[in-house]
Amino acid sequence: MWKDRFGEAPGKVFSAYWTIKSEPDLRQLMAERHKASITVALLLVETKAAPLTFRRWTPETRMVRGDRNIPVPPPDARIVTSDIAIAPLLGWTTEGYRFGYGMGYFDRTLAALEPKPFVVGIGFSEARLQTIFPQPHDIPLDLIVTEKGIQTVRDVF
């Protein structure tokens, strides 16, 4: 069961992000998922102030520069629907809320998806916050993982 939820099962789509600034680097995890015959996708901005798009990625994908000069799969890469989505955390709370770069893309994306993917936030334990003062549009994550292990579990197992 847990393997299905965390992108270990072939046939699932595992989406991640391309690391920027001090975010945890997921490239090795992405390559491992690909090698295990799991479809890997990267989140990218195709339209400003709209939900993100999930485009298929492989270790051989020739990346192009996207929004804010972040490397992304090219426009001809297949669009997929994510089963398991990984989100970067600049900050997080024990209730599963995340603090990001403040553009609202990730929450806008989760609100638009049906069914909603299982969402895992990846960050550092020192980034835990007392609160982010969640707004009605903020959507809590299902799980938070840091270098110290699982920090937040919302009916996962």
Score class of each variant (00 low, 15 high):
Ala41Cys: 11
Ala41Arg: 13
Ala41Phe: 15
Ala41Thr: 13
Leu42Cys: 15
Leu42Ala: 15
Leu42Trp: 00
Leu42Phe: 00
Leu43Arg: 03
Leu43Glu: 06
Leu43Ile: 00
Leu43Val: 00
Leu44Trp: 11
Lys48Cys: 05
Lys48Gly: 01
Lys48Met: 11
Ala49Asp: 14
Ala49Gln: 12
Ala50Thr: 15
Ala50Ile: 15
Ala50Gln: 12
Pro51Trp: 15
Pro51Val: 01
Pro51Gln: 14
Leu52Met: 12
Leu52Gly: 01
Leu52Gln: 04
Thr53Asp: 05
Phe54Ser: 03
Phe54Trp: 15
Phe54Thr: 01
Arg55Met: 07
Arg55Ser: 01
Arg56Gly: 02
Trp57Gly: 09
Thr58Gly: 09
Thr58Trp: 08
Pro59Ile: 11
Pro59Leu: 07
Pro59Glu: 02
Glu60Leu: 13
Glu60His: 11
Thr61Gly: 10
Thr61Trp: 03
Arg62Asp: 08
Met63Pro: 11
Arg65Trp: 12
Arg65Cys: 13
Arg65Met: 12
Gly66Glu: 03
Gly66Arg: 05
Gly66Ala: 06
Gly66Asp: 04
Asp67Thr: 02
Asp67Cys: 10
Asp67Ser: 09
Asp67Gly: 02
Arg68Gln: 14
Arg68Cys: 12
Asn69Glu: 09
Pro71Phe: 12
Pro71Ile: 13
Pro71His: 07
Pro71Gly: 04
Pro71Val: 14
Val72Pro: 05
Val72Gly: 12
Pro73Tyr: 14
Pro73Trp: 15
Pro74Asn: 04
Pro74His: 07
Pro75Ile: 06
Asp76Ile: 12
Asp76Cys: 01
Asp76Gln: 10
Arg78Gln: 12
Arg78Met: 10
Ile79Trp: 01
Ile79Leu: 03
Val80Cys: 07
Val80His: 03
Thr81Ala: 14
Thr81Leu: 12
Thr81Cys: 11
Thr81Tyr: 14
Ser82Ile: 10
Asp83Arg: 05
Asp83Ser: 08
Ile84Asp: 01
Ala85Tyr: 00
Ala85Asp: 00
Ala85Leu: 13
Ala87Lys: 07
Ala87His: 09
Ala87Thr: 13
Pro88Cys: 03
Pro88Asn: 03
Pro88Ser: 03
Leu89Gln: 10
Gly91Thr: 13
Trp92Ile: 13
Trp92Gly: 07
Trp92Ala: 08
Thr93Pro: 05
Thr93Asn: 05
Thr93Phe: 09
Thr93Cys: 08
Thr93Gly: 07
Thr94Tyr: 15
Thr94Cys: 08
Thr94His: 13
Thr94Leu: 14
Gly96Ala: 07
Gly96Cys: 06
Gly96Trp: 04
Tyr97Leu: 10
Arg98Asp: 00
Phe99Gln: 11
Phe99Ser: 14
Gly100Met: 04
Gly100Tyr: 05
Gly100Ala: 06
Tyr101Gln: 12
Gly102Ser: 03
Gly102His: 11
Gly102Pro: 06
Met103Arg: 14
Met103Leu: 14
Gly104Phe: 12
Gly104Pro: 00
Tyr105Cys: 05
Tyr105Ser: 04
Phe106Trp: 02
Asp107Ala: 03
Asp107Arg: 01
Asp107Ser: 05
Asp107Gly: 09
Asp107His: 04
Arg108Asn: 02
Arg108Val: 10
Thr109Cys: 10
Thr109His: 02
Leu110Arg: 09
Leu110Gly: 06
Leu110Gln: 06
Leu110Lys: 08
Ala111Ser: 06
Ala111Ile: 10
Ala111His: 11
Ala112Pro: 07
Ala112Phe: 12
Ala112Asp: 13
